[in-house]
Amino acid sequence: MRLDRYLASVTDYSRNDAKKLIKLGDIYVDGRVVCDPKQLIAADADVTLMGNPLRPLGPRYLMLNKPQGIICAARDRRHSTVLDLLDEDNPERLHVVGRLDIDTTGLVLLTDDGGWSHAITSPQRRCWKTYYVETAEVIPERCIEHFARGVFLKDDKARTLPAELTIIEDRSARLKICEGRYHQVKRMFGAEGNAVTRLHREAIGYIHLDTDLAEGEYRALSTDEVASVFE
């Protein structure tokens, strides 16, 4: 890899800023100063910036407890994004695995590992997502059967895939779905003549939102949590 590209990939410097630093003689490769941004370096090269060793970032896997009013996007002119909540190097390299609406709270996963995120979002994998739901009207028992059979959503040609609904109280329930259609949970209850007043994602697959995380906080996933995606 070219030295300027390597430097930009492991720091917050842009490619132009990286070139300037290299030309100033602040970069050492395997103990020798290198002033040519085009210099090719080996993957295992020992690179230092002003004496500080630089290492490529490994894959990152994060869970975040998303508050209301935050959007799942890289940037937005009107609202704060989930990336704004992160204290990470190169946060722009991370992407959201399964977005949530601006008014939906709970578990959001972020990673820079495309293969890992695909294993979660691929329709063929049918990864279950668990939501806590509160509604404006009483949830009738018939919804359990309707959701298990699949419901037709407005403008969609096919029924939703079978879902698992557990009624907790008159106006609250836990719903597990294995697909991710646009506003799916809200539209499923809407098809039953009900409106969702609160929606909170509790789990994606075997990864459950850490109850110790306050809204807006995040942490790295454990090795077991990362591996659970492929189970």
Rank of each mutant, 00 (worst) to 15 (best):
R201L: 02
G114L: 08
S14E: 02
S222E: 14
R60H: 04
Y182A: 13
Y132H: 15
T223F: 08
A18M: 02
L110N: 04
D30E: 09
S9K: 09
Q68K: 15
G205Q: 02
L100K: 05
D44M: 04
R125Y: 14
L7T: 00
E145W: 09
H208Y: 03
E192S: 07
T160V: 14
D44G: 05
S9T: 03
D212Y: 04
D36A: 04
D101V: 01
T81E: 06
R149W: 03
K19G: 14
R142V: 11
V82L: 14
Q124Y: 04
H208L: 00
K186V: 01
E88R: 07
D30W: 02
I204K: 10
R15M: 08
R198A: 05
D76V: 05
G58V: 14
G180M: 07
V226P: 01
D156R: 11
Q68N: 11
C72G: 01
S228Q: 04
N16W: 00
R174L: 10
P123H: 11
A18T: 00
L109E: 06
E225N: 08
G114N: 03
R77S: 12
I144N: 01
N16T: 10
P123T: 04
R99S: 10
L165S: 07
I71Y: 00
L62H: 14
H95K: 12
V34Q: 08
Y131G: 04
V96T: 15
K23R: 11
G98V: 10
Y206I: 08
L221I: 15
T11V: 09
K157Q: 14
V196A: 03
R93N: 15
V229L: 08
R125P: 01
R171W: 03
R5Y: 04
T121K: 13
L3R: 01
G216Y: 06
R78K: 13
G216Q: 03
D112P: 15
L85G: 07
R159W: 01
